[in-house]
Simulated scan of single mutants.
Amino acid sequence: MKYEDLTHKIIGCAMKVHSTLGNGFQEVIYQRALAIEMQKQGLEFQREMEMSIFYEGYDIGTRRVDFFVEEKIMLELKALTNLEEVHLAQAMNYCQAYNLPIGLLVNFGAKSLQFKRVYNLTHPENKDYKNNNPKIKKS
């Protein structure tokens, strides 16, 4: 899988943050802690980066992505009791709208860290990727 090492490193940072803070904080607290941990691990990122959303080549608005890591991976954070399919669909839609091959959805609000690699199935880099029923993983 392309970017496997990078996504693994990001997930490791999220696990460190979750194991240190536990669940129960607001999303912004996890975002700040994750920024510190990713910086310690030497990852380059932009936080709260405003990105344009396109529809058939037209710029139709913007959305702030929680993190854009190494100019490759969109990272969307949540602090919910449990991730649901709607959150997975949202992250997949962001990958499509930003024309990125892969993103990560991470939830700090559950008792165990939840994460999911999400793929833009329309991106040329993912033409061979088949995943009709993605599941949310728990650590």
Rank of each mutant, 00 (worst) to 15 (best):
Y3V: 00
L100V: 11
T7A: 05
V65K: 03
M1N: 00
H18Y: 02
E50V: 10
A89T: 13
R64Y: 08
L21K: 07
E48Y: 01
Q114L: 04
S112V: 09
N82P: 00
L104W: 07
Y98S: 06
Q96E: 15
Y30L: 12
E37S: 03
L113S: 10
E27M: 03
V118L: 04
F25K: 10
F25H: 15
A110C: 11
P124N: 06
K111W: 04
G57H: 07
A110H: 14
L88P: 03
A110I: 04
S52Q: 11
A91C: 15
G42Y: 01
Q41M: 12
N99P: 06
G103V: 12
T62W: 05
L105N: 06
Q96N: 13
T7G: 04
T62K: 15
E48H: 04
E85F: 00
E76W: 03
E76F: 03
P101A: 11
E27G: 03
E37H: 01
Y55W: 12
S112T: 13
I36V: 12
E71N: 15
S52G: 12
L121K: 04
F25I: 05
E56W: 01
A35N: 02
E50Y: 01
E70C: 03
A35W: 01
G42W: 00
K78C: 02
Q31T: 07
C13W: 00
N126Q: 05
L105K: 03
N82D: 14
Y94R: 08
L88N: 06
Y58A: 15
I73L: 12
E125K: 09
L43T: 05
T20E: 14
G57Y: 06
I10G: 04
N133R: 10
I11G: 06
P134D: 00
G24M: 04
N93K: 12
E76V: 08
G24Q: 08
I53D: 05
T7D: 02
L113H: 11
F115T: 13
K40R: 09
M49N: 08
Y30G: 13
A14L: 09
N132W: 06
L34Q: 00
E76Q: 10
K9A: 10
F115I: 02
H123L: 01
S112N: 14
Y129T: 05
E27C: 04
L88C: 06
Y3H: 11
I102W: 00
M1P: 02
A33Y: 01
K40E: 10
N99T: 12
R63H: 15
R63K: 15
S52A: 12
Q39M: 13
P101W: 01
I102V: 14
L83H: 09
F108N: 09
Q96P: 00
N126A: 03
G12Q: 00
R63F: 14
M51R: 05
F115V: 07
E44S: 13
F115M: 12
L77K: 02
G57D: 05
L6E: 13
L75S: 08
K116I: 13
L6H: 06
T7M: 13
Q90S: 12
R117T: 10
I36D: 11
N126T: 02
Q90H: 14
M49F: 10
L80K: 12
